[in-house]
Amino acid sequence: MRWMWIDRIVELEPRRRLVAIKNISLAEEHLHDHFAARPALDGRPARPALPIMPASLIIEGMAQTAGILVGHAEEFREKVILAKIGRAEFDRDVTPGLTLRYTATIQQIDKVGASTAGLVELLDLSDPARAAAEIGRIDLMFSHIDQNMAGLDFPEHNFVFGEGFKTLLRMSGIAVPG
C-alpha cells in the first residue's frame, strides 16, 4: 500500500468523473526530506525545515484518481498506463494538515486510450469558510497498453490494478472486480 497517493474515493460517476481525497500528514517520511532544515554555510543563512508535498506526488495522486476512472470505464479489463502529462500547474505549496481533493473528468476515451482533465483543490480545516480553493490543474493521457504495443506481450493478469487499488475501492464503497 506504499504507493497509494490517494486515501479515499468520495464520488464516482462512471465514465465521466471521479473525486478522491488525500490527507497530507507530517508522519509521511518524504516530507522530512522535502525539504530538510539547512544550516548556515558559506555565507548562506540557515533555513528552517519546509515540509511540502512534492508536486510530482501530487501528479501521481491525480494519475491514480484519473487512472481508476479510466480503468473503471472498462471494468478494469484494460491495463491503463499513464502515457503523457499534458499540463501540470500549481499555484501554491501543500503543507501537512491540509487535504487535497482531486477531481478527474474524462475528456475522451476510446479503445486505445483516454484523456482526462484534472482539478486540484485544497481543503483547510482551519479556514472558517471551509471552502475548497483551486490550486492546480493536471491534464493527463492514458494508454490501454494491450491495444497499443503491437507485437509486445504483457502479462495476462492486470498488474496495474493490484491489491492496493482493490483495497482503496473497497474501502470507498465501490464494487471491486474479480
Binding site: 502515457a83 503523457k84 499534458g86 475528456q107 475522451q108 486505445v112 486510450g113 484523456s115 493521457m141 494508454s143 497499443n148
Partner: peptide
C-alpha cells in the same frame, strides 16, 4: 513520440 499520435487524434476530434 508514439503517444503523441493518440493525443493529436483526440485533439483533432475535439
Amino acid at each position: 513520440e508514439s503517444i503523441d499520435f493518440l493525443d493529436i487524434v483526440f485533439k483533432l476530434e475535439q
